[in-house]
Write a protein that binds this DNA or RNA. Structure first.
Lengths: 309, 309
DNA sequence: ATATCCGCTGCATAAAATGCAGCGCTCTGA
DNA sequence: TCAGAGCGCTGCATTTTATGCAGCGGATAT
């Protein structure tokens, strides 16, 4: 949009760190760009950049302005999305920040369902740990977040909550297969393959172990949930994950089962958006679909303590 | 601001109802204005006006856009206000929609106090009935509302609430002066001078009367609270008002006293803003001052049933 | 000390917005 | 029924605005 041009240029300067570099990025001359910035500051009433010998940096006023710029842009695209919706067109873009567990089954399926109904809608899916997901919402770089056990919860508006037990993952030939009530201590007798400390599952495990005076020692620690699933096939070890990231039916080699709720109560998988924000139509509708799908799963598996057979 | 020029022009067309009229108002040619509108619609992706044989009217897409325009402008002034604040300057403008009762004493005093501390801040005070005040907030034409017994309360975020009993107003030589507990039925024996039906005090009176199987018949009905106060001096009648609109000490001729809480419990005087909105600094600080002042009054007169002597 | 990178400015030029005149259309009122 | 008024819209000349070019002075890094 033409009237946002100045804002785009300001953002370019912020990114590039200097007018001359930003000028290259924006196919302008440093002189032209410089004068636009100056003209804007004049109009705005205060400088928004600090002039350093090596370039430009936002001053506090500029930081405030950047928030305004971002929110204006998102609001305008929201309006356009709503207009498209009332014109009968169903176009738009949905951006989601999500935990890794959503990547293998849940989100691909849900997005495919949505896109089969509305092919004009595009998606971007970004993997974020639970704190980064919330920052993504606040900076408008994602419309929705679907995360396990978020941390701060300020500026986070919960659209749907779903309890998720922690599941242990092991080979079908593991002795754990025989257990009817899978206590945590059984698992700790095996080699452990654990997600990194930033992850909610790890946090719950650490907590549960500490309560029982045990400590977790990982044979392998990784940031990749996919790695965990594959590794347990090679070494007869135990991994942990939440069921939404696992196949409903165990496959030929791999089994998974909820750790006894007596040991770990499980955490919350939360669907949320930035507090107070009105989402674009496509994002709002998709969020609604996700909420329904999550609710359906809860109904199918109503208890935290469900043992997948 | 330069980049909002197009929006200003769009608003002018909306107001004027035709391009040619709007062109006069904005010191432009119809041709230039026409092309700006067309260029914007092109960029925006959809027409925002209906072309009628007699002029232009917003279509639904345009209505949505207008909301965006208004919120964008308000947000920008908020940012400027915040920047002014962090630069140490205390400038800005506060707009208040309020009930009539605030006009004679409370608001003038509060605004004078604020302006003595911050002479750079200007005010606009608009008298609005309780439903119109809420619409003012929603349309961004007022930052704050200070109203008695608001109606809808959607989009209304309460910043401070204060109970206000209904006071009867009469001459000092009225027989009502002798009553220690001023029951409603004593008042109804006199000629009544009542505020119009839109007002909260009237609503409470009607309700109380109806509960007791009485009906109110007004000798004079008016929209002006000032008129009420002056009229009871001429005819020995009874008027009604909330105490915040009355002098703390009765004056030489006029007396007022709370109607017994057994008959009317009183209503709420609410200070509020539009839900979710971040106010400009000056407005936020002034709202805070108002809240403190209201709280101080509550402390001085803690009970609804207070009888002003 | 020198070379480099920075923001900034005067001046000529390119680009965009505006004004002017006029078209076709619809509705109004004698 | 028919002229007039009002409307949105467009081609073209003109004005206003934005941009490019070249160069200045200052701070920094080597």
């Amino acid at each position: 949009m033409k009237h946002l041009k100045t804002f785009v240029l300001i953002e370019a300067v912020v990114r590039a760190g200097s007018i001359r570099k930003a000028a290259e990025d924006t196919n302008l001359t440093a002189s032209a760009l410089n004068r636009r910035i100056q003209a804007f500051e004049q109009e705005f009433g205060w400088p928004i950049f600090e002039r350093l010998p090596r370039g430009m940096r936002l001053n506090p006023a500029g930081e405030l302005l950047m928030q305004h710029i971002q929110s204006q842009r998102t609001d305008l695209t929201r309006v356009q999305s709503q207009v498209a919706d009332l014109s009968g067109e169903r176009r738009g873009h949905v951006s989601i920040a999500c935990s890794q567990a959503l990547l293998p089954y849940f989100l691909p399926e849900q997005i495919a369902i949505y896109r089969s109904a509305h092919p004009g809608v595009t998606f971007s899916v970004n993997v974020r740990d639970r704190s980064q997901a919330e920052r993504d919402l606040a900076s408008f770089s994602s419309d929705l977040a679907l995360v396990f056990e978020p941390v701060h919860l300020v500026e986070f508006e919960v659209l749907h909550a779903m309890a998720q037990p922690v599941h242990a993952i092991f080979r079908r030939d593991s002795p754990l297969m025989q257990r009817t009530d899978l206590r945590l201590r059984y698992c700790l007798d095996h080699h452990l393959i654990l997600p990194a400390k930033a992850y909610g599952v790890r946090h719950l495990l650490e907590q549960a172990a500490a309560q029982r005076g045990r400590t977790l020692s990982a044979a392998v620690e990784t940031e990749s949930f996919e790695f965990i699933r594959h590794y347990v096939l090679h070494e007869n070890a135990v991994g942990f994950q939440i069921p939404i990231g696992l196949k409903m039916d165990n496959d030929r080699l791999l089994a998974h089962r909820a750790v006894s709720p007596r040991d770990i109560v499980g955490g919350q998988l939360l669907l949320g958006q930035m507090k107070g924000r009105t989402l674009p139509v496509a994002s709002a509708k998709f969020a609604h679909q996700l909420a329904l799908a999550l609710a359906a799963r809860t109904e199918a598996n109503p208890s935290h303590s469900d043992h997948c057979p």
